[in-house]
């Protein structure tokens, strides 16, 4: 659905994205994660055609989104900072969206009133809580019937019930109509629940891009103990992190599960245990390898 090739963007000489390649498959729920300042929001603004790339290309179904209303009709964008006019209520904003998106589904809007029943559609949006404002934008964006939903920190401010509710609506759309979702968030636990693809952005480059299952099967936590001294694993395995606790070694290892198991067995351990990593753990250990680790600071 989205193909990004050699994308670069800089502001006043400061390089934010550098030769970035990325591919979001059709029907995927693609989670874009990365530390603060990695360039996620800039990437989102480039994908939505807000910014023009300095170099490289972005294609949404083969077309450049910049200055292309036809492409923009096919996606809905929910930014981290919401836009509405101070006088607008939900009904006004609905009319605005309906006037801009030819595929706006009025029936769906009425149907979803039940889901968003706590919102008074006649009340000015500025008077709604942050979470409710987000709900309004989700509601209207879903009604645009987009083929692609681009979400920048989407559920920030929503209560847990509403988060689930919204993800449930989005995922059912993904399942039913094959909608693609590109979502950037720091809430990795949540992304882990909904994403099937993940890209980790760091210093303007996409460090890792995999399906979540591949990613999780490719990085594992291993607990291993030896009768004698443990071997030097760095020569044998791609170790991201190593910790010793008595005779038990805890390793974070990257690689194919079977290969890792075979190499480990060859070292004659007393026991081995291989555990899957959460997305959050994968992020932390991968970032550690990229000089972005948790520092032990004693104050």
């Amino acid at each position: 659905m989205i193909k990004i090739n050699k994308l670069s963007k800089s502001f006043d000489g400061h390089v934010v994205l550098n030769d970035l390649d990325m591919h979001v498959p059709k029907g995927a729920v693609y989670g874009l994660v990365g530390p603060n300042g990695a360039g996620k929001s800039t990437l989102m603004r480039l994908v939505t055609g807000i910014y023009r790339p300095d170099n490289g290309s972005i294609k949404i179904d083969g077309s450049d989104p910049y200055e292309n209303a036809a492409v923009k009709e096919r996606f809905a964008y929910i930014p981290d900072e919401l836009f509405y006019h101070v006088q607008d209520n939900t009904e006004d904003l609905k009319k605005y969206y309906a006037g801009l998106y030819p595929g706006f589904d009025h029936a769906l809007y009425e149907k979803l009133k039940e889901v968003f029943s706590s919102i008074d559609t006649k009340q000015p949006i500025r008077r709604l809580s942050k979470g409710m404002k987000k709900q309004v934008i989700f509601w209207l964006s879903i009604c645009c019937r987009p083929e692609l939903m681009i979400l920048d920190e989407p559920v920030d401010g929503l209560d847990p019930v509403m988060r689930r509710q919204i993800w449930s609506i989005l995922l059912s759309d993904v399942a039913e109509s094959g909608m693609t979702v590109l979502v950037s968030s720091h809430n990795l636990r949540e992304l882990e629940d909904v994403c099937d693809h993940v890209g980790i952005l760091h210093k303007g480059k996409l460090m890792i891009e995999h399906s979540l299952s591949d990613l999780q099967s490719n990085i594992m936590k291993i607990q291993v103990a030896y009768a004698n001294d443990a071997p030097d694993f760095h020569g044998i395995l791609d170790v991201l992190h190593e910790k010793t606790s008595g005779r038990v070694k805890e390793l974070i290892v990257r690689g194919d599960q079977e290969t890792v198991r075979r190499k480990l067995t060859a070292t004659n351990p007393l026991f081995t245990d291989m555990l899957p990593l959460t997305l959050e753990e994968i992020f932390i250990y991968e970032m550690g390898g990229a000089d972005y680790e948790i520092k032990d600071i004693f104050i």
């Binding site: 603004r45 055609g49 200055e67 492409v71 964008y77 930014p79 900072e81 801009l100």
Partner: peptide
């Protein structure tokens, strides 16, 4: 930035 970005993300050319 908020309004400018959002308005230019809508399906309307400049």
């Amino acid at each position: 930035a908020r309004s400018s970005n959002m308005i230019h993300a809508f399906p309307v050319d400049r």
